[in-house]
Design a binder for these strands. Structure first.
Length: 266
DNA sequence: TAAAATGTTGGGTA
DNA sequence: ATACCCAACATTTT
């Protein structure tokens, strides 16, 4: 589930226990978690490297090591925790990074969709991604240009990581509601004031979610509290807080899509 | 019980 | 260029 705000929260939470730590070994219990290089090469190359900093690009965590980059994508159910080595392991702790200080970072991933990369060039993994919505360089003008260049329903547009990076199913719906724009509107149909509203809405929605430490849903990602602030996501048949009309749930591109039948007209 | 649905993404085929 | 279905997998819900 983790989208941009949850990944950002995870990065911030991991900095204190990780930065400055040296990775002395890696335990790989599910080899297919390691995307590149081979598990054997991975273990060898990461060994004895220190974590110098942690950043984020879209939904990827980037661990800046001494001589390479460790990237992790949590996909649908991934979680990262740093614990004492003596802490009992969970059956879904698939990849474990052992630190020199006796603690370890565990990549727990029930559905096993997550991926781990060790690369010299971050762009090898993130090169196909669109702009970061919270960067200063991402202006309303820039969003407008990208919107105009494609003819896609907005929901589909917002989920396309090559056009705009980091927005997932929850924040796409929340952003469109805050902008009062219907998810089926086509990207190249927005008027300039609508572009501006959508741009502001995306950034506000993501920043607010980060302030709430992300959203917690079910058993995944237990930290955040932004789920208490959803306006449309998972609120089908409930009244809109803005206009009182009921929230609808439809399926677009195989993804559940929530919008207000009053505020968001086609 | 069995089928459907769940936050992601990439690929293959129209 | 876009749309649609499928794949990866485990667990919960219908």
């Amino acid at each position: 589930m983790p989208e941009l705000p949850e990944v950002e929260t995870t990065v911030r939470r991991l900095r204190e226990p990780c930065v400055g730590q040296r990775i002395v070994a890696v335990t790989i219990n599910w080899a297919r978690h390691i995307s590149t290089p081979s598990p054997k090469q991975f273990r060898q190359r990461i060994r004895d490297q220190k974590i110098e900093s942690i950043t984020r690009r879209a939904k990827y965590l980037i661990f800046n090591l001494e001589s390479s980059f460790l990237l992790i994508h949590l996909k649908m159910s991934g979680r990262l925790e740093v614990v004492e080595a003596a802490t009992p392991r969970d059956k879904h702790d698939h990849t474990i990074f052992h630190f020199a200080n006796g603690r370890e970072m565990r990549f727990n991933d029930t559905r096993k969709f997550g991926k781990v990369y060790l690369v010299d060039d971050v762009e090898d993994v993130t090169g196909h991604l669109g702009p970061e919505p919270l960067e200063e360089s991402f202006t309303a003008k820039r969003l407008g240009e990208i919107l105009q260049a494609h003819h896609k329903p907005l929901k589909t547009f917002l989920l396309d990581q090559t056009l705009l990076a980091g927005v997932g199913n929850i924040y796409a719906d929340e952003s469109l509601h805050r902008a009062k724009i219907h998810p089926k509107r086509y990207s190249d149909s927005l008027k300039p004031d609508e572009v501006k509203k959508l741009w502001r809405s995306i950034r506000h929605t993501l920043n607010l979610a980060i302030k709430h430490n992300g959203s917690s849903i079910d058993w995944v990602y237990p930290q955040g509290e932004h789920q208490n602030h959803f306006r449309v996501y998972d609120r089908q048949d409930e009244p809109c807080y803005t206009c009182g009309r009921s929230i609808r749930r439809i399926v677009m591109g195989g993804r559940s899509t929530h919008f207000c039948s009053g505020c968001q007209r086609l």
